[in-house]
Design a protein around this nucleic acid. Structure first.
Length: 425
DNA sequence: TCTGGGGTCCTAGGACCC
DNA sequence: TCTGGGGTCCTAGGACCC
Protein backbone atom coordinates (compact mmCIF):
# COMPACT_ATOMS: atom_id res chain seq x y z
CA UNK A 1 0.00 0.00 0.00
CA UNK A 2 1.29 3.40 -0.93
CA UNK A 3 2.12 5.80 1.87
CA UNK A 4 0.60 8.79 0.09
CA UNK A 5 -1.77 10.59 2.43
CA UNK A 6 -3.98 13.67 2.43
CA UNK A 7 -3.68 16.48 4.95
CA UNK A 8 -6.31 19.10 5.61
CA UNK A 9 -4.73 22.26 6.97
CA UNK A 10 -6.99 25.04 8.20
CA UNK A 11 -6.64 28.18 10.26
CA UNK A 12 -8.31 28.26 13.67
CA UNK A 13 -11.07 30.89 13.83
CA UNK A 14 -9.57 32.40 10.70
CA UNK A 15 -11.09 35.90 10.69
CA UNK A 16 -10.47 36.37 14.41
CA UNK A 17 -6.89 35.14 14.01
CA UNK A 18 -6.34 37.67 11.22
CA UNK A 19 -7.55 40.50 13.43
CA UNK A 20 -5.21 39.35 16.19
CA UNK A 21 -2.14 39.39 13.95
CA UNK A 22 -2.30 43.16 13.83
CA UNK A 23 -3.85 43.81 17.22
CA UNK A 24 -2.25 41.59 19.85
CA UNK A 25 -4.44 43.19 22.53
CA UNK A 26 -7.14 40.83 21.26
CA UNK A 27 -5.11 37.81 22.36
CA UNK A 28 -6.84 35.91 25.16
CA UNK A 29 -9.98 38.03 24.92
CA UNK A 30 -13.37 37.00 23.54
CA UNK A 31 -13.55 38.34 19.98
CA UNK A 32 -16.20 38.03 17.26
CA UNK A 33 -16.15 39.11 13.63
CA UNK A 34 -19.44 40.34 12.17
CA UNK A 35 -20.98 39.88 8.73
CA UNK A 36 -21.67 42.75 6.39
CA UNK A 37 -23.90 45.42 7.92
CA UNK A 38 -22.62 44.14 11.27
CA UNK A 39 -25.61 41.81 11.06
CA UNK A 40 -24.51 38.59 12.68
CA UNK A 41 -21.51 36.69 14.02
CA UNK A 42 -19.46 34.88 11.39
CA UNK A 43 -16.35 34.03 13.40
CA UNK A 44 -15.65 33.56 17.11
CA UNK A 45 -12.53 33.19 19.18
CA UNK A 46 -12.32 30.23 21.55
CA UNK A 47 -13.13 32.60 24.42
CA UNK A 48 -16.27 33.80 22.62
CA UNK A 49 -17.36 30.20 22.03
CA UNK A 50 -17.05 29.56 25.77
CA UNK A 51 -19.48 32.45 26.36
CA UNK A 52 -22.03 30.47 24.36
CA UNK A 53 -22.11 32.81 21.35
CA UNK A 54 -23.29 30.88 18.30
CA UNK A 55 -22.22 31.35 14.70
CA UNK A 56 -24.97 33.30 13.00
CA UNK A 57 -26.12 34.93 16.22
CA UNK A 58 -27.57 38.39 15.46
CA UNK A 59 -25.28 41.09 16.80
CA UNK A 60 -28.15 43.23 18.09
CA UNK A 61 -29.06 40.43 20.51
CA UNK A 62 -25.54 40.19 21.94
CA UNK A 63 -24.45 43.78 21.82
CA UNK A 64 -25.99 44.60 25.21
CA UNK A 65 -23.82 42.12 27.09
CA UNK A 66 -20.63 42.84 25.14
CA UNK A 67 -19.23 45.30 27.65
CA UNK A 68 -19.91 43.13 30.68
CA UNK A 69 -18.24 40.21 28.91
CA UNK A 70 -15.29 42.24 27.67
CA UNK A 71 -16.29 41.08 24.19
CA UNK A 72 -14.66 42.79 21.21
CA UNK A 73 -16.53 42.90 17.87
CA UNK A 74 -14.93 43.62 14.50
CA UNK A 75 -16.66 44.24 11.19
CA UNK A 76 -15.44 41.83 8.56
CA UNK A 77 -12.46 43.07 6.59
CA UNK A 78 -12.23 40.80 3.57
CA UNK A 79 -9.32 42.60 1.98
CA UNK A 80 -7.19 41.78 5.01
CA UNK A 81 -8.41 38.16 5.21
CA UNK A 82 -7.92 37.57 1.50
CA UNK A 83 -4.35 38.80 1.64
CA UNK A 84 -3.42 36.75 4.72
CA UNK A 85 -5.13 33.74 3.16
CA UNK A 86 -2.85 33.90 0.12
CA UNK A 87 0.19 34.01 2.41
CA UNK A 88 -0.99 31.02 4.45
CA UNK A 89 -1.68 29.01 1.27
CA UNK A 90 1.77 29.74 -0.10
CA UNK A 91 3.50 28.53 3.09
CA UNK A 92 1.32 25.40 3.40
CA UNK A 93 1.79 24.57 -0.29
CA UNK A 94 5.56 24.26 0.23
CA UNK A 95 4.96 21.08 2.23
CA UNK A 96 2.70 19.21 -0.19
CA UNK A 97 3.26 17.03 -3.22
CA UNK A 98 0.10 18.75 -4.49
CA UNK A 99 -2.25 21.37 -3.06
CA UNK A 100 -5.92 22.09 -3.44
CA UNK A 101 -7.09 25.38 -1.96
CA UNK A 102 -10.53 24.49 -0.74
CA UNK A 103 -11.69 27.70 0.93
CA UNK A 104 -10.34 30.97 2.22
CA UNK A 105 -8.78 29.24 5.22
CA UNK A 106 -8.29 25.57 4.28
CA UNK A 107 -6.34 23.55 1.83
CA UNK A 108 -5.75 19.88 1.15
CA UNK A 109 -2.17 18.85 0.44
CA UNK A 110 -0.50 15.58 -0.44
CA UNK A 111 1.94 14.16 2.14
CA UNK A 112 4.05 11.00 2.17
CA UNK A 113 5.35 8.99 5.07
CA UNK A 114 4.63 6.68 7.97
CA UNK A 115 2.38 7.88 10.81
CA UNK A 116 5.27 9.31 12.81
CA UNK A 117 6.60 11.23 9.80
CA UNK A 118 3.12 12.58 9.04
CA UNK A 119 2.72 13.73 12.62
CA UNK A 120 6.09 15.49 12.38
CA UNK A 121 5.16 17.12 9.06
CA UNK A 122 1.99 18.45 10.66
CA UNK A 123 4.00 20.04 13.45
CA UNK A 124 6.38 21.60 10.92
CA UNK A 125 3.48 23.10 8.96
CA UNK A 126 2.02 24.62 12.10
CA UNK A 127 5.32 26.15 13.10
CA UNK A 128 6.01 27.53 9.62
CA UNK A 129 2.63 29.23 9.28
CA UNK A 130 2.95 30.71 12.74
CA UNK A 131 6.42 32.03 11.98
CA UNK A 132 5.70 33.42 8.50
CA UNK A 133 2.12 34.64 8.85
CA UNK A 134 1.33 34.59 12.57
CA UNK A 135 -1.91 32.58 12.62
CA UNK A 136 -2.52 29.18 14.27
CA UNK A 137 -3.48 26.20 12.09
CA UNK A 138 -4.64 22.64 12.74
CA UNK A 139 -3.64 19.65 10.61
CA UNK A 140 -5.54 16.40 10.05
CA UNK A 141 -3.91 13.60 8.03
CA UNK A 142 -5.57 10.45 6.69
CA UNK A 143 -6.04 8.34 3.58
CA UNK A 144 -9.05 10.21 2.14
CA UNK A 145 -10.37 13.76 2.19
CA UNK A 146 -13.36 12.82 4.32
CA UNK A 147 -11.11 11.15 6.89
CA UNK A 148 -8.62 14.04 6.78
CA UNK A 149 -11.47 16.40 7.66
CA UNK A 150 -12.44 14.09 10.49
CA UNK A 151 -8.84 13.93 11.73
CA UNK A 152 -8.63 17.71 11.61
CA UNK A 153 -11.68 17.89 13.82
CA UNK A 154 -10.04 15.57 16.34
CA UNK A 155 -6.92 17.75 16.28
CA UNK A 156 -9.03 20.82 17.07
CA UNK A 157 -11.02 19.28 19.87
CA UNK A 158 -8.18 17.65 21.80
CA UNK A 159 -5.80 20.20 23.21
CA UNK A 160 -3.35 17.42 24.07
CA UNK A 161 -2.71 16.71 20.39
CA UNK A 162 -1.16 20.13 19.88
CA UNK A 163 -3.15 20.81 16.73
CA UNK A 164 -2.02 17.79 14.70
CA UNK A 165 -3.77 14.46 14.19
CA UNK A 166 -2.44 11.81 11.83
CA UNK A 167 -5.34 9.39 12.07
CA UNK A 168 -3.20 6.28 11.62
CA UNK A 169 -0.96 7.21 14.52
CA UNK A 170 -3.92 6.67 16.85
CA UNK A 171 -4.90 3.19 18.08
CA UNK A 172 -7.64 1.77 15.83
CA UNK A 173 -10.06 1.05 18.66
CA UNK A 174 -9.66 4.63 19.90
CA UNK A 175 -10.66 5.97 16.46
CA UNK A 176 -13.56 3.51 16.28
CA UNK A 177 -14.70 4.67 19.71
CA UNK A 178 -14.79 8.30 18.59
CA UNK A 179 -16.64 7.36 15.41
CA UNK A 180 -19.22 5.49 17.47
CA UNK A 181 -19.80 8.55 19.68
CA UNK A 182 -19.80 11.37 17.11
CA UNK A 183 -23.05 11.86 15.15
CA UNK A 184 -22.89 11.46 11.38
CA UNK A 185 -23.90 15.11 11.06
CA UNK A 186 -20.38 15.98 12.22
CA UNK A 187 -19.00 14.74 8.91
CA UNK A 188 -18.03 16.76 5.89
CA UNK A 189 -20.89 16.52 3.40
CA UNK A 190 -23.58 15.39 5.84
CA UNK A 191 -25.91 18.25 6.61
CA UNK A 192 -29.03 18.60 8.68
CA UNK A 193 -31.47 17.27 6.08
CA UNK A 194 -29.44 14.21 5.30
CA UNK A 195 -28.71 13.37 8.93
CA UNK A 196 -32.35 13.48 9.95
CA UNK A 197 -33.23 11.15 7.06
CA UNK A 198 -30.37 8.86 8.08
CA UNK A 199 -31.71 8.72 11.63
CA UNK A 200 -35.00 7.33 10.31
CA UNK A 201 -32.97 4.43 8.95
CA UNK A 202 -31.25 3.93 12.31
CA UNK A 203 -27.98 5.50 11.15
CA UNK A 204 -26.90 7.95 13.83
CA UNK A 205 -23.13 7.86 14.35
CA UNK A 206 -20.20 8.07 11.98
CA UNK A 207 -19.57 4.39 12.73
CA UNK A 208 -23.15 3.56 11.67
CA UNK A 209 -22.68 5.36 8.36
CA UNK A 210 -19.30 3.75 7.80
CA UNK A 211 -20.95 0.31 8.18
CA UNK A 212 -23.86 1.14 5.87
CA UNK A 213 -24.27 -0.51 2.46
CA UNK A 214 -22.91 1.94 -0.17
CA UNK A 215 -25.31 0.71 -2.86
CA UNK A 216 -28.31 1.21 -0.62
CA UNK A 217 -27.09 4.68 0.37
CA UNK A 218 -26.74 5.59 -3.28
CA UNK A 219 -30.25 4.39 -4.00
CA UNK A 220 -31.88 6.18 -1.07
CA UNK A 221 -29.75 9.33 -1.17
CA UNK A 222 -27.25 10.16 -3.86
CA UNK A 223 -23.84 9.41 -5.23
CA UNK A 224 -22.55 12.19 -2.97
CA UNK A 225 -23.39 10.34 0.24
CA UNK A 226 -22.23 7.06 -1.25
CA UNK A 227 -18.81 8.62 -1.73
CA UNK A 228 -18.80 9.65 1.92
CA UNK A 229 -19.40 6.03 2.97
CA UNK A 230 -16.62 4.77 0.70
CA UNK A 231 -14.21 7.45 1.89
CA UNK A 232 -14.91 6.56 5.53
CA UNK A 233 -13.74 3.09 4.62
CA UNK A 234 -10.52 4.35 3.08
CA UNK A 235 -11.42 4.44 -0.64
CA UNK A 236 -10.58 7.77 -2.27
CA UNK A 237 -13.60 8.98 -4.26
CA UNK A 238 -13.39 12.76 -4.10
CA UNK A 239 -10.86 13.90 -6.68
CA UNK A 240 -8.29 16.66 -6.18
CA UNK A 241 -8.93 19.89 -7.98
CA UNK A 242 -5.41 21.29 -8.11
CA UNK A 243 -6.26 24.30 -10.13
CA UNK A 244 -9.77 25.63 -9.92
CA UNK A 245 -11.25 25.70 -13.38
CA UNK A 246 -13.00 28.88 -14.34
CA UNK A 247 -15.84 29.82 -12.08
CA UNK A 248 -19.31 28.88 -13.17
CA UNK A 249 -21.09 31.71 -11.43
CA UNK A 250 -20.16 35.19 -10.30
CA UNK A 251 -22.38 36.91 -7.82
CA UNK A 252 -22.75 40.26 -6.18
CA UNK A 253 -25.25 40.32 -3.37
CA UNK A 254 -25.68 42.55 -0.35
CA UNK A 255 -28.22 43.43 2.28
CA UNK A 256 -29.02 47.09 2.94
CA UNK A 257 -28.47 49.04 6.14
CA UNK A 258 -32.10 50.17 5.90
CA UNK A 259 -35.09 48.92 3.88
CA UNK A 260 -35.91 50.15 0.39
CA UNK A 261 -39.68 50.39 -0.14
CA UNK A 262 -40.16 51.97 -3.56
CA UNK A 263 -39.73 50.55 -7.04
CA UNK A 264 -37.64 53.60 -7.99
CA UNK A 265 -35.43 52.92 -4.99
CA UNK A 266 -34.91 49.33 -6.11
CA UNK A 267 -34.04 50.52 -9.63
CA UNK A 268 -31.36 52.68 -8.08
CA UNK A 269 -30.07 49.70 -6.09
CA UNK A 270 -29.98 47.47 -9.15
CA UNK A 271 -28.12 50.08 -11.20
CA UNK A 272 -25.39 49.99 -8.58
CA UNK A 273 -25.42 46.24 -8.02
CA UNK A 274 -25.33 45.40 -11.72
CA UNK A 275 -22.24 47.59 -12.02
CA UNK A 276 -20.58 46.00 -9.02
CA UNK A 277 -21.32 42.58 -10.47
CA UNK A 278 -20.06 43.64 -13.88
CA UNK A 279 -16.85 44.87 -12.28
CA UNK A 280 -16.32 41.43 -10.74
CA UNK A 281 -17.01 39.72 -14.01
CA UNK A 282 -14.47 42.02 -15.63
CA UNK A 283 -11.83 41.31 -12.97
CA UNK A 284 -12.24 37.60 -13.64
CA UNK A 285 -11.96 38.23 -17.37
CA UNK A 286 -15.30 36.59 -18.09
CA UNK A 287 -18.45 37.15 -20.12
CA UNK A 288 -21.92 35.97 -19.09
CA UNK A 289 -24.77 34.66 -21.17
CA UNK A 290 -27.35 35.13 -18.41
CA UNK A 291 -27.92 37.34 -15.42
CA UNK A 292 -30.28 36.59 -12.55
CA UNK A 293 -31.58 39.58 -10.63
CA UNK A 294 -32.82 38.90 -7.11
CA UNK A 295 -34.25 40.89 -4.24
CA UNK A 296 -35.83 39.97 -0.96
CA UNK A 297 -37.68 41.23 2.08
CA UNK A 298 -36.80 39.99 5.57
CA UNK A 299 -36.94 36.23 6.07
CA UNK A 300 -37.93 36.90 9.67
CA UNK A 301 -40.86 39.23 9.11
CA UNK A 302 -44.43 37.97 9.41
CA UNK A 303 -46.41 37.40 6.22
CA UNK A 304 -45.44 36.31 2.75
CA UNK A 305 -42.71 38.74 1.87
CA UNK A 306 -41.51 39.36 -1.67
CA UNK A 307 -38.62 37.45 -3.26
CA UNK A 308 -38.41 38.26 -6.95
CA UNK A 309 -35.84 36.35 -9.00
CA UNK A 310 -35.68 37.10 -12.71
CA UNK A 311 -33.26 35.54 -15.17
CA UNK A 312 -32.36 37.57 -18.24
CA UNK A 313 -30.67 35.79 -21.12
CA UNK A 314 -28.49 37.63 -23.60
CA UNK A 315 -28.34 36.88 -27.31
CA UNK A 316 -24.65 36.21 -26.93
CA UNK A 317 -22.29 36.33 -23.95
CA UNK A 318 -21.40 39.83 -22.88
CA UNK A 319 -19.48 41.73 -20.25
CA UNK A 320 -20.98 45.11 -21.04
CA UNK A 321 -22.06 46.98 -17.90
CA UNK A 322 -24.52 49.14 -19.82
CA UNK A 323 -26.37 46.04 -21.01
CA UNK A 324 -26.39 44.66 -17.46
CA UNK A 325 -27.61 47.88 -15.86
CA UNK A 326 -30.42 48.31 -18.38
CA UNK A 327 -31.54 44.72 -18.01
CA UNK A 328 -31.33 44.70 -14.21
CA UNK A 329 -33.24 47.96 -13.84
CA UNK A 330 -35.95 46.82 -16.25
CA UNK A 331 -36.25 43.44 -14.51
CA UNK A 332 -36.67 44.92 -11.07
CA UNK A 333 -39.08 47.56 -12.35
CA UNK A 334 -41.40 44.80 -13.52
CA UNK A 335 -41.02 42.45 -10.59
CA UNK A 336 -40.52 44.54 -7.46
CA UNK A 337 -43.67 45.09 -5.40
CA UNK A 338 -44.28 48.72 -4.51
CA UNK A 339 -44.47 49.15 -0.74
CA UNK A 340 -42.64 45.91 0.05
CA UNK A 341 -39.79 46.40 2.49
CA UNK A 342 -36.75 45.10 0.62
CA UNK A 343 -33.65 44.34 2.65
CA UNK A 344 -31.37 42.71 0.15
CA UNK A 345 -30.65 42.37 -3.56
CA UNK A 346 -28.18 40.66 -5.81
CA UNK A 347 -27.09 39.87 -9.34
CA UNK A 348 -25.82 36.45 -10.38
CA UNK A 349 -24.01 35.92 -13.66
CA UNK A 350 -24.03 32.45 -15.21
CA UNK A 351 -23.22 30.79 -18.51
CA UNK A 352 -19.68 32.16 -18.19
CA UNK A 353 -16.87 32.02 -20.72
CA UNK A 354 -13.49 33.73 -20.99
CA UNK A 355 -13.79 37.23 -22.43
CA UNK A 356 -10.46 37.08 -24.24
CA UNK A 357 -9.93 35.82 -27.77
CA UNK A 358 -12.94 35.17 -29.92
CA UNK A 359 -14.86 38.36 -29.42
CA UNK A 360 -17.40 38.58 -32.21
CA UNK A 361 -18.12 42.14 -33.23
CA UNK A 362 -21.73 42.60 -34.11
CA UNK A 363 -22.04 45.80 -36.09
CA UNK A 364 -25.77 45.95 -35.44
CA UNK A 365 -25.26 45.90 -31.70
CA UNK A 366 -25.10 49.04 -29.62
CA UNK A 367 -22.11 47.46 -27.90
CA UNK A 368 -19.79 47.85 -30.84
CA UNK A 369 -19.70 51.60 -30.36
CA UNK A 370 -19.40 51.33 -26.62
CA UNK A 371 -16.03 49.64 -26.96
CA UNK A 372 -14.77 48.28 -23.69
CA UNK A 373 -16.79 50.25 -21.18
CA UNK A 374 -16.23 47.67 -18.45
CA UNK A 375 -12.48 47.83 -18.87
CA UNK A 376 -12.45 51.62 -18.73
CA UNK A 377 -14.59 51.67 -15.60
CA UNK A 378 -12.32 49.07 -14.00
CA UNK A 379 -9.18 51.05 -14.73
CA UNK A 380 -10.63 54.23 -13.29
CA UNK A 381 -11.76 52.40 -10.16
CA UNK A 382 -8.34 50.84 -9.69
CA UNK A 383 -6.69 54.23 -9.81
CA UNK A 384 -9.18 56.39 -7.98
CA UNK A 385 -11.29 54.01 -5.88
CA UNK A 386 -14.65 52.33 -6.35
CA UNK A 387 -16.68 55.51 -5.84
CA UNK A 388 -14.79 57.43 -8.53
CA UNK A 389 -16.95 56.51 -11.50
CA UNK A 390 -20.34 55.01 -12.24
CA UNK A 391 -23.03 54.76 -14.87
CA UNK A 392 -26.34 56.61 -14.80
CA UNK A 393 -28.05 56.64 -11.44
CA UNK A 394 -25.32 54.33 -10.18
CA UNK A 395 -22.86 57.22 -10.37
CA UNK A 396 -23.32 58.56 -6.89
CA UNK A 397 -20.83 61.01 -5.44
CA UNK A 398 -21.94 60.05 -1.94
CA UNK A 399 -22.95 56.69 -0.59
CA UNK A 400 -26.73 56.31 -0.74
CA UNK A 401 -28.84 55.83 2.40
CA UNK A 402 -29.09 52.08 2.08
CA UNK A 403 -25.40 51.31 1.63
CA UNK A 404 -23.53 48.99 3.92
CA UNK A 405 -22.71 49.65 7.54
CA UNK A 406 -19.26 48.72 8.91
CA UNK A 407 -18.85 50.36 12.25
CA UNK A 408 -16.16 48.19 13.80
CA UNK A 409 -13.75 47.78 10.94
CA UNK A 410 -10.03 47.29 11.31
CA UNK A 411 -7.67 48.95 8.79
CA UNK A 412 -6.61 47.23 5.58
CA UNK A 413 -3.17 46.73 7.08
CA UNK A 414 -1.62 44.84 4.21
CA UNK A 415 -3.37 46.08 1.07
CA UNK A 416 -3.62 49.85 1.45
CA UNK A 417 -0.52 52.04 1.84
CA UNK A 418 -2.42 54.60 3.88
CA UNK A 419 -3.49 51.94 6.37
CA UNK A 420 -0.16 50.22 7.00
CA UNK A 421 0.41 49.43 10.65
CA UNK A 422 2.81 51.79 12.42
CA UNK A 423 5.55 50.22 14.52
CA UNK A 424 7.30 52.25 17.20
CA UNK A 425 10.55 51.11 18.71
C1' DT B 1 -35.13 48.63 14.59
C1' DC B 2 -31.64 44.94 13.81
C1' DT B 3 -30.67 37.96 11.44
C1' DG B 4 -24.21 37.38 5.67
C1' DG B 5 -22.29 36.41 1.19
C1' DG B 6 -20.41 33.46 -2.21
C1' DG B 7 -19.95 29.28 -4.03
C1' DT B 8 -20.22 23.86 -5.63
C1' DC B 9 -22.33 19.59 -7.30
C1' DC B 10 -26.26 16.58 -8.17
C1' DT B 11 -30.91 15.34 -9.59
C1' DA B 12 -35.41 15.49 -11.52
C1' DG B 13 -38.09 16.83 -15.00
C1' DG B 14 -39.31 19.34 -19.23
C1' DA B 15 -38.28 20.31 -24.14
C1' DC B 16 -36.89 18.53 -28.13
C1' DC B 17 -35.29 15.18 -31.52
C1' DC B 18 -35.44 10.96 -34.26
C1' DT C 1 -60.35 2.33 -22.80
C1' DC C 2 -55.82 2.01 -25.09
C1' DT C 3 -51.60 7.27 -28.12
C1' DG C 4 -43.48 4.70 -28.37
C1' DG C 5 -39.32 4.96 -26.49
C1' DG C 6 -34.87 6.37 -25.88
C1' DG C 7 -31.37 9.88 -25.92
C1' DT C 8 -29.58 14.60 -25.06
C1' DC C 9 -29.61 19.12 -23.44
C1' DC C 10 -31.00 22.57 -20.31
C1' DT C 11 -32.70 24.55 -16.08
C1' DA C 12 -34.58 25.02 -11.49
C1' DG C 13 -34.16 23.63 -7.14
C1' DG C 14 -32.12 20.95 -3.31
C1' DA C 15 -28.40 20.14 -0.28
C1' DC C 16 -24.19 21.25 1.30
C1' DC C 17 -19.91 23.94 2.35
C1' DC C 18 -17.15 27.84 4.52
Amino acid sequence: MSNARIALVDVNNFYVSCERVFDPRLEGRPVVVLSNNDGCVVARSAEAKVLGIATGAPWFQIQGQAKAWGLVARSSNYELYGDLSARVMEVVGRFGTWQEVYSIDESFIGLMGDPAQLQAAGRDIRAAVMRHVGVPVCVGVASTKTLAKFANRIAKQNAGLDGVCALESMPGDHVAGIQARVPASGLWGVGERTSSRLKLMGIESIADLKAADPALIRKKFSVVLQRTVLELNGTQCIPHVEERVDKQQIMFSRSFSQPVTTVEGMEEVMAVYAQRGAARLNEEGMRASAMTVTAGTSRFAAGEGSFPAVTVRFDRPTSDPITFVRAAVAAIRHHAVAGASYLRAGVLFSGLEPASGTEVLDIFSTEASQADVGGVLGNVRNKFGSAAIGLGIGGFAQAPQWSMKREHSSPRYTTEWKELPVVRA
